[in-house]
Simulated assay, not measured.
Amino acid sequence: MIGRALTSFFWGWLADRYGRKPIILIGTSSVVLFNALFGLSTSLWMALSMRFLLGCFNSLLGTIRAYASEVCREEYRSVALSVVSTSRGIGMIIGPAIGGFLAQPAEKFPNLFAESSIFGRFPYFLPCLVISVYAVGVLAACWWLPETLHMHDKKVSERCDSFDVLEASSEESDEKEYVTEVKERKISKNANLLRNWPLMSVIIVYCVFSLQEIAYAEMFSLWAVSDKKYGGLSFSSQDVGEVLAISGFGLLLFQLLLYPPIEKLLGPITVTRISAAVSIPLLASYPYIAMLSGITLHLVINCASILRNTLSVTLVTGLFILQNNAVPQSQRAAANGISMTAMSVFKAFGPVGGGTL
Protein backbone atom coordinates (compact mmCIF):
# COMPACT_ATOMS: atom_id res chain seq x y z
CA MET A 1 0.00 0.00 0.00
CA ILE A 2 2.82 2.42 0.83
CA GLY A 3 4.57 1.76 -2.48
CA ARG A 4 1.34 2.23 -4.40
CA ALA A 5 0.56 5.42 -2.50
CA LEU A 6 3.95 6.88 -3.42
CA THR A 7 3.81 6.19 -7.15
CA SER A 8 0.16 5.99 -8.28
CA PHE A 9 -0.06 9.63 -9.33
CA PHE A 10 3.24 9.37 -11.21
CA TRP A 11 2.04 6.38 -13.22
CA GLY A 12 -1.26 8.12 -13.88
CA TRP A 13 0.57 11.17 -15.19
CA LEU A 14 2.66 8.95 -17.47
CA ALA A 15 -0.49 7.20 -18.72
CA ASP A 16 -2.04 10.56 -19.62
CA ARG A 17 1.13 11.63 -21.41
CA TYR A 18 2.30 8.47 -23.18
CA GLY A 19 -0.74 6.21 -23.24
CA ARG A 20 -2.55 3.59 -21.17
CA LYS A 21 -1.08 0.51 -22.81
CA PRO A 22 2.60 1.00 -21.80
CA ILE A 23 1.62 1.49 -18.15
CA ILE A 24 -0.58 -1.61 -18.22
CA LEU A 25 2.31 -3.64 -19.66
CA ILE A 26 4.73 -2.33 -17.03
CA GLY A 27 2.29 -3.06 -14.21
CA THR A 28 1.61 -6.60 -15.43
CA SER A 29 5.35 -7.24 -15.82
CA SER A 30 5.90 -6.15 -12.23
CA VAL A 31 3.40 -8.77 -11.08
CA VAL A 32 5.31 -11.47 -12.96
CA LEU A 33 8.65 -10.49 -11.44
CA PHE A 34 8.05 -9.27 -7.91
CA ASN A 35 5.31 -11.75 -7.06
CA ALA A 36 7.61 -14.67 -7.91
CA LEU A 37 10.44 -13.13 -5.89
CA PHE A 38 8.05 -12.64 -2.97
CA GLY A 39 7.47 -16.40 -2.92
CA LEU A 40 11.24 -16.94 -2.81
CA SER A 41 11.76 -14.59 0.12
CA THR A 42 14.21 -15.82 2.73
CA SER A 43 13.53 -13.13 5.32
CA LEU A 44 10.82 -10.75 6.45
CA TRP A 45 12.68 -7.76 5.02
CA MET A 46 13.01 -9.39 1.62
CA ALA A 47 9.29 -10.15 1.62
CA LEU A 48 8.45 -6.57 2.61
CA SER A 49 10.82 -5.21 -0.04
CA MET A 50 9.22 -7.28 -2.79
CA ARG A 51 5.74 -6.16 -1.78
CA PHE A 52 6.92 -2.55 -1.65
CA LEU A 53 8.44 -2.76 -5.13
CA LEU A 54 5.32 -4.48 -6.43
CA GLY A 55 3.26 -1.59 -5.11
CA CYS A 56 5.64 0.96 -6.62
CA PHE A 57 5.56 -0.50 -10.13
CA ASN A 58 2.01 -1.82 -10.22
CA SER A 59 -0.51 0.87 -11.13
CA LEU A 60 -2.90 -1.41 -12.96
CA LEU A 61 -6.16 -0.59 -11.22
CA GLY A 62 -6.11 3.16 -11.76
CA THR A 63 -4.95 2.92 -15.36
CA ILE A 64 -7.40 0.15 -16.22
CA ARG A 65 -10.26 2.18 -14.78
CA ALA A 66 -9.36 4.98 -17.18
CA TYR A 67 -8.89 2.50 -20.03
CA ALA A 68 -12.22 0.75 -19.42
CA SER A 69 -14.15 4.00 -19.64
CA GLU A 70 -12.51 4.83 -22.99
CA VAL A 71 -12.38 1.52 -24.83
CA CYS A 72 -16.14 1.27 -25.35
CA ARG A 73 -18.99 3.59 -26.29
CA GLU A 74 -20.59 5.76 -23.63
CA GLU A 75 -23.72 3.63 -23.30
CA TYR A 76 -21.56 0.63 -22.34
CA ARG A 77 -19.27 2.53 -19.97
CA SER A 78 -21.10 1.38 -16.85
CA VAL A 79 -20.77 -2.24 -18.00
CA ALA A 80 -17.03 -1.81 -18.55
CA LEU A 81 -16.42 -0.27 -15.14
CA SER A 82 -18.72 -2.86 -13.61
CA VAL A 83 -16.52 -5.60 -15.05
CA VAL A 84 -13.45 -3.91 -13.55
CA SER A 85 -15.10 -3.66 -10.13
CA THR A 86 -16.39 -7.22 -10.33
CA SER A 87 -13.00 -8.60 -11.30
CA ARG A 88 -11.38 -6.75 -8.43
CA GLY A 89 -14.04 -7.90 -5.97
CA ILE A 90 -13.89 -11.53 -7.06
CA GLY A 91 -10.11 -11.43 -6.93
CA MET A 92 -10.18 -10.18 -3.34
CA ILE A 93 -12.66 -12.91 -2.42
CA ILE A 94 -11.28 -15.93 -4.27
CA GLY A 95 -7.58 -14.99 -4.34
CA PRO A 96 -6.92 -15.62 -0.64
CA ALA A 97 -8.77 -18.94 -0.87
CA ILE A 98 -6.60 -20.09 -3.79
CA GLY A 99 -3.46 -18.90 -2.04
CA GLY A 100 -4.36 -20.79 1.10
CA PHE A 101 -5.06 -23.95 -0.89
CA LEU A 102 -1.70 -23.90 -2.71
CA ALA A 103 0.44 -22.74 0.21
CA GLN A 104 2.75 -25.29 1.89
CA PRO A 105 2.28 -27.92 -0.85
CA ALA A 106 4.95 -30.25 0.58
CA GLU A 107 2.80 -30.72 3.69
CA LYS A 108 -0.56 -30.90 1.94
CA PHE A 109 0.49 -32.91 -1.11
CA PRO A 110 3.58 -34.92 -0.10
CA ASN A 111 3.12 -37.31 -3.02
CA LEU A 112 3.54 -34.46 -5.49
CA PHE A 113 6.00 -32.14 -3.75
CA ALA A 114 9.01 -33.41 -1.81
CA GLU A 115 10.33 -31.61 1.26
CA SER A 116 13.71 -31.25 -0.44
CA SER A 117 12.21 -29.57 -3.51
CA ILE A 118 12.02 -25.83 -4.03
CA PHE A 119 8.38 -25.94 -2.96
CA GLY A 120 9.38 -27.58 0.30
CA ARG A 121 12.10 -25.03 1.01
CA PHE A 122 9.84 -22.13 0.01
CA PRO A 123 6.36 -23.18 1.16
CA TYR A 124 4.63 -20.11 -0.30
CA PHE A 125 6.35 -20.14 -3.68
CA LEU A 126 3.74 -22.29 -5.46
CA PRO A 127 0.80 -19.84 -5.16
CA CYS A 128 3.11 -16.98 -6.11
CA LEU A 129 4.41 -18.94 -9.09
CA VAL A 130 0.89 -19.75 -10.26
CA ILE A 131 -0.04 -16.07 -10.10
CA SER A 132 3.13 -15.10 -11.99
CA VAL A 133 2.47 -17.67 -14.72
CA TYR A 134 -1.09 -16.40 -15.00
CA ALA A 135 0.26 -12.84 -15.23
CA VAL A 136 2.54 -13.92 -18.11
CA GLY A 137 -0.56 -14.97 -20.04
CA VAL A 138 -2.24 -11.67 -19.20
CA LEU A 139 0.89 -9.81 -20.32
CA ALA A 140 0.83 -11.59 -23.67
CA ALA A 141 -2.86 -10.76 -24.13
CA CYS A 142 -2.29 -7.10 -23.19
CA TRP A 143 0.27 -6.76 -25.97
CA TRP A 144 -2.57 -6.61 -28.50
CA LEU A 145 -4.67 -4.10 -26.58
CA PRO A 146 -5.56 -1.00 -28.60
CA GLU A 147 -4.38 2.33 -27.25
CA THR A 148 -7.24 4.57 -26.10
CA LEU A 149 -5.37 7.81 -25.45
CA HIS A 150 -5.99 9.67 -28.68
CA MET A 151 -3.30 12.23 -29.38
CA HIS A 152 -4.67 15.33 -31.12
CA ASP A 153 -3.20 16.41 -34.41
CA LYS A 154 -0.45 18.97 -33.98
CA LYS A 155 -1.90 20.95 -36.85
CA VAL A 156 -5.04 21.62 -34.84
CA SER A 157 -2.94 23.00 -32.00
CA GLU A 158 -1.02 25.22 -34.38
CA ARG A 159 -4.26 26.52 -35.84
CA CYS A 160 -5.53 27.34 -32.36
CA ASP A 161 -2.37 29.23 -31.43
CA SER A 162 -2.18 31.26 -34.63
CA PHE A 163 -5.84 31.97 -35.20
CA ASP A 164 -6.68 35.64 -34.83
CA VAL A 165 -10.30 35.98 -33.77
CA LEU A 166 -10.42 39.75 -34.30
CA GLU A 167 -9.47 39.49 -37.98
CA ALA A 168 -11.63 36.49 -38.78
CA SER A 169 -14.30 37.01 -41.38
CA SER A 170 -17.93 36.14 -40.95
CA GLU A 171 -17.51 33.17 -43.29
CA GLU A 172 -15.15 31.60 -40.76
CA SER A 173 -17.61 31.58 -37.85
CA ASP A 174 -17.86 27.80 -37.81
CA GLU A 175 -14.09 27.50 -37.71
CA LYS A 176 -13.92 29.99 -34.83
CA GLU A 177 -16.39 27.95 -32.83
CA TYR A 178 -14.34 24.82 -33.47
CA VAL A 179 -11.10 26.50 -32.45
CA THR A 180 -12.73 27.90 -29.31
CA GLU A 181 -13.86 24.41 -28.38
CA VAL A 182 -10.36 23.02 -28.85
CA LYS A 183 -8.93 25.88 -26.76
CA GLU A 184 -11.34 25.01 -23.97
CA ARG A 185 -10.13 21.42 -24.11
CA LYS A 186 -6.55 22.65 -23.84
CA ILE A 187 -7.44 24.72 -20.78
CA SER A 188 -9.20 21.79 -19.11
CA LYS A 189 -6.18 19.63 -19.84
CA ASN A 190 -4.03 21.89 -17.68
CA ALA A 191 -6.62 22.38 -14.93
CA ASN A 192 -5.56 21.66 -11.36
CA LEU A 193 -7.11 18.35 -10.34
CA LEU A 194 -6.87 19.21 -6.65
CA ARG A 195 -9.24 22.13 -7.25
CA ASN A 196 -11.75 19.94 -9.04
CA TRP A 197 -14.33 19.65 -6.26
CA PRO A 198 -16.53 16.98 -7.93
CA LEU A 199 -13.42 14.81 -8.31
CA MET A 200 -12.15 15.47 -4.80
CA SER A 201 -15.54 14.76 -3.23
CA VAL A 202 -15.72 11.39 -4.98
CA ILE A 203 -12.17 10.54 -3.89
CA ILE A 204 -12.97 11.42 -0.26
CA VAL A 205 -15.99 9.11 -0.27
CA TYR A 206 -13.93 6.38 -1.96
CA CYS A 207 -11.19 6.66 0.68
CA VAL A 208 -13.61 6.45 3.60
CA PHE A 209 -15.33 3.46 2.05
CA SER A 210 -11.99 1.76 1.28
CA LEU A 211 -11.05 2.04 4.95
CA GLN A 212 -14.29 0.30 5.90
CA GLU A 213 -13.89 -2.29 3.14
CA ILE A 214 -10.40 -3.41 4.09
CA ALA A 215 -11.36 -3.47 7.78
CA TYR A 216 -14.32 -5.73 6.94
CA ALA A 217 -12.10 -8.05 4.91
CA GLU A 218 -9.68 -8.22 7.84
CA MET A 219 -12.36 -8.96 10.42
CA PHE A 220 -14.78 -11.24 8.57
CA SER A 221 -12.58 -14.35 8.48
CA LEU A 222 -11.45 -13.83 12.09
CA TRP A 223 -15.05 -13.39 13.19
CA ALA A 224 -16.24 -16.43 11.24
CA VAL A 225 -13.64 -18.83 12.69
CA SER A 226 -13.94 -17.50 16.26
CA ASP A 227 -15.78 -19.59 18.81
CA LYS A 228 -19.44 -18.82 19.43
CA LYS A 229 -18.75 -18.00 23.06
CA TYR A 230 -16.72 -15.04 21.79
CA GLY A 231 -19.46 -13.91 19.41
CA GLY A 232 -18.10 -15.74 16.36
CA LEU A 233 -19.60 -18.36 14.07
CA SER A 234 -17.32 -21.34 14.91
CA PHE A 235 -16.73 -21.90 11.19
CA SER A 236 -13.88 -23.94 9.80
CA SER A 237 -11.57 -22.48 7.17
CA GLN A 238 -13.41 -24.61 4.61
CA ASP A 239 -16.74 -23.09 5.66
CA VAL A 240 -15.29 -19.60 5.25
CA GLY A 241 -13.97 -20.52 1.82
CA GLU A 242 -17.39 -21.76 0.75
CA VAL A 243 -19.04 -18.53 1.88
CA LEU A 244 -16.50 -16.45 -0.04
CA ALA A 245 -16.82 -18.60 -3.17
CA ILE A 246 -20.62 -18.33 -3.16
CA SER A 247 -20.33 -14.58 -2.63
CA GLY A 248 -17.99 -14.28 -5.59
CA PHE A 249 -20.35 -16.17 -7.87
CA GLY A 250 -23.36 -14.12 -6.77
CA LEU A 251 -21.38 -10.92 -7.21
CA LEU A 252 -20.43 -11.89 -10.76
CA LEU A 253 -24.03 -12.54 -11.75
CA PHE A 254 -25.30 -9.30 -10.25
CA GLN A 255 -22.65 -7.03 -11.72
CA LEU A 256 -22.87 -8.46 -15.22
CA LEU A 257 -26.64 -8.92 -15.48
CA LEU A 258 -28.38 -6.55 -13.06
CA TYR A 259 -26.10 -3.59 -12.36
CA PRO A 260 -25.99 -2.06 -15.89
CA PRO A 261 -29.80 -1.69 -16.25
CA ILE A 262 -30.12 -0.47 -12.65
CA GLU A 263 -27.41 2.13 -13.19
CA LYS A 264 -29.01 3.22 -16.45
CA LEU A 265 -32.40 3.59 -14.76
CA LEU A 266 -31.34 5.35 -11.54
CA GLY A 267 -27.98 6.89 -12.40
CA PRO A 268 -24.62 6.36 -10.65
CA ILE A 269 -25.24 8.87 -7.85
CA THR A 270 -28.54 7.32 -6.76
CA VAL A 271 -27.16 3.79 -6.98
CA THR A 272 -24.16 4.78 -4.86
CA ARG A 273 -26.33 6.44 -2.24
CA ILE A 274 -28.68 3.47 -1.99
CA SER A 275 -25.76 1.03 -1.68
CA ALA A 276 -24.19 3.07 1.11
CA ALA A 277 -27.49 3.45 2.97
CA VAL A 278 -28.38 -0.25 2.82
CA SER A 279 -24.87 -1.29 3.91
CA ILE A 280 -25.25 0.37 7.31
CA PRO A 281 -28.14 -1.75 8.71
CA LEU A 282 -26.73 -4.84 6.99
CA LEU A 283 -23.37 -4.59 8.77
CA ALA A 284 -25.14 -3.73 12.02
CA SER A 285 -27.05 -7.02 11.81
CA TYR A 286 -23.93 -9.21 11.75
CA PRO A 287 -23.68 -9.64 15.56
CA TYR A 288 -27.23 -11.00 15.58
CA ILE A 289 -26.39 -13.51 12.84
CA ALA A 290 -23.98 -15.16 15.29
CA MET A 291 -26.98 -16.10 17.44
CA LEU A 292 -28.23 -18.45 14.73
CA SER A 293 -27.10 -22.03 14.21
CA GLY A 294 -27.32 -24.94 11.81
CA ILE A 295 -28.64 -24.57 8.30
CA THR A 296 -30.28 -21.26 9.18
CA LEU A 297 -26.90 -19.77 10.05
CA HIS A 298 -25.31 -20.95 6.80
CA LEU A 299 -28.23 -19.69 4.73
CA VAL A 300 -28.36 -16.27 6.39
CA ILE A 301 -24.60 -15.65 6.39
CA ASN A 302 -24.36 -16.59 2.71
CA CYS A 303 -27.19 -14.23 1.82
CA ALA A 304 -25.69 -11.46 3.96
CA SER A 305 -22.24 -11.97 2.44
CA ILE A 306 -23.60 -11.90 -1.11
CA LEU A 307 -25.61 -8.76 -0.38
CA ARG A 308 -22.72 -7.03 1.37
CA ASN A 309 -20.20 -7.75 -1.40
CA THR A 310 -22.75 -6.78 -4.05
CA LEU A 311 -23.42 -3.46 -2.34
CA SER A 312 -19.70 -2.89 -1.90
CA VAL A 313 -18.80 -3.42 -5.54
CA THR A 314 -21.90 -1.51 -6.68
CA LEU A 315 -20.83 1.47 -4.61
CA VAL A 316 -17.27 1.30 -5.92
CA THR A 317 -18.49 1.03 -9.52
CA GLY A 318 -20.68 4.09 -9.07
CA LEU A 319 -17.75 6.03 -7.64
CA PHE A 320 -15.57 4.96 -10.58
CA ILE A 321 -18.16 6.29 -13.03
CA LEU A 322 -18.52 9.58 -11.17
CA GLN A 323 -14.77 9.98 -10.94
CA ASN A 324 -14.16 9.42 -14.64
CA ASN A 325 -17.02 11.74 -15.54
CA ALA A 326 -15.51 14.53 -13.42
CA VAL A 327 -12.40 14.94 -15.60
CA PRO A 328 -11.56 15.06 -19.33
CA GLN A 329 -9.82 12.13 -20.99
CA SER A 330 -6.47 13.90 -20.88
CA GLN A 331 -6.55 13.88 -17.05
CA ARG A 332 -8.38 10.62 -16.44
CA ALA A 333 -5.39 8.45 -15.55
CA ALA A 334 -3.88 11.15 -13.33
CA ALA A 335 -7.20 11.49 -11.52
CA ASN A 336 -7.29 7.74 -10.96
CA GLY A 337 -3.70 7.97 -9.76
CA ILE A 338 -4.67 10.52 -7.11
CA SER A 339 -7.57 8.29 -6.12
CA MET A 340 -5.30 5.25 -5.80
CA THR A 341 -2.76 7.22 -3.77
CA ALA A 342 -5.34 8.42 -1.26
CA MET A 343 -7.07 5.04 -1.14
CA SER A 344 -3.79 3.23 -0.49
CA VAL A 345 -3.05 5.49 2.48
CA PHE A 346 -6.46 4.76 3.99
CA LYS A 347 -6.20 1.03 3.29
CA ALA A 348 -2.82 0.90 4.99
CA PHE A 349 -4.55 1.73 8.28
CA GLY A 350 -7.59 -0.48 7.70
CA PRO A 351 -6.11 -3.88 8.69
CA VAL A 352 -4.45 -2.41 11.77
CA GLY A 353 -7.61 -0.69 12.89
CA GLY A 354 -9.84 -3.64 12.08
CA GLY A 355 -7.56 -6.14 13.77
CA THR A 356 -7.24 -3.95 16.85
CA LEU A 357 -11.01 -3.55 17.20
Rank of each mutant, 00 (worst) to 15 (best):
H150I: 14
R185K: 06
S169P: 03
T148V: 05
K228W: 12
E181C: 12
S237V: 13
S170V: 13
F109Q: 04
V182W: 00
E213F: 08
S116C: 02
S173D: 11
V136A: 00
M200S: 01
N111A: 10
S188T: 00
E115R: 09
V182P: 00
K108Y: 09
W197V: 09
W223M: 09
Y206P: 02
V179S: 01
V165I: 14
D239F: 12
S188H: 03
L222A: 15
E147H: 12
F209D: 08
F113P: 01
E167N: 13
W143T: 13
T180S: 02
C160V: 15
L193N: 03
A168M: 08
S173I: 11
L199I: 06
I131Q: 03
S162N: 15
D174E: 13
D239C: 10
R185T: 01
S226T: 08
G248Y: 06
K183D: 00
Y206R: 05
S132E: 08
I187G: 01
F109M: 04
N196R: 09
W144E: 04
E167Q: 12
G120E: 05
S169D: 15
L166R: 11
I118V: 14
E181Q: 15
V240M: 14
F220G: 12
P198N: 12
Y178A: 11
D174G: 13
K186H: 08
I203H: 02
D153F: 06
L194T: 04
E175I: 15
S237E: 15
W143K: 15
L129M: 11
A191Y: 04
L193H: 05
N196A: 03
V130L: 09
G137W: 07
L139W: 11
